[in-house]
Design a protein around this nucleic acid. Sequence first.
DNA 1: TGAATGATGCGCT
DNA 2: GCGCATCATTCAT
Length: 204
Amino acid sequence: MAPNKSQKLTRSFYNRDTLTVARELIGRYIIYRSVRGRLSARIVEVEAYIGEDDPACHAACGPTERNRLMYGKPGVAYIYFIYGMYHCLNFVTERKGFPAAVLLRAAEPISGIEIVRANSSHGAEHALLSGPGKFCRGFGLTLAQNGLDLTGTELYLEDRCDPATEIGVSKRIGIRQGAEKLWRFYDAKSDAASQLGHMRRRRV
DNA sequence: TGAATGATGCGCT
DNA sequence: GCGCATCATTCAT
């Protein structure tokens, strides 16, 4: 059998229930063909933000210029600027008109690690992309990439998956409203996924 | 080992 | 003017 040529996830993948998409994103590979070279990483932590009824969702107060991509077609990158210095990357999900997205919170660097390290400046390899702000910093993603179509060639997810042996579920991190929803998914065995409190791993 | 805090700029009420 | 889907550093225990 010929080796599998890795395929891109299509728009129909994103055009589904957001929690399903979020769960299925764990273990997938994200590819970014940056001007500095090709970067890839394995996704290990995500969070879902779903609709105007979700008080933590950027669309909670209805459509604005900032969140308009969330109302658009699925399979698009929604990137926003936060806390004066960080960017966060989301994948828009569900049908056009319904605002929802999955926030990428952490990944394991796979290739282009030297570029990630140069963007990040310091830290252990497994920690380079372990956080939504750190991921965008390491990959070099900014508002300039906001709105990129994930079915294009610059930024996309591969169909290929290295599934987690154990997927954890928890409350979302860093929010106040809607904090009780268990809409965070992570690879429980990954060093790059942020662990919480008592689950924190011991040093080796 | 964990809690508190400063950095820093923009969107929105 | 306030609060924010963060992070690194400082401080307390």
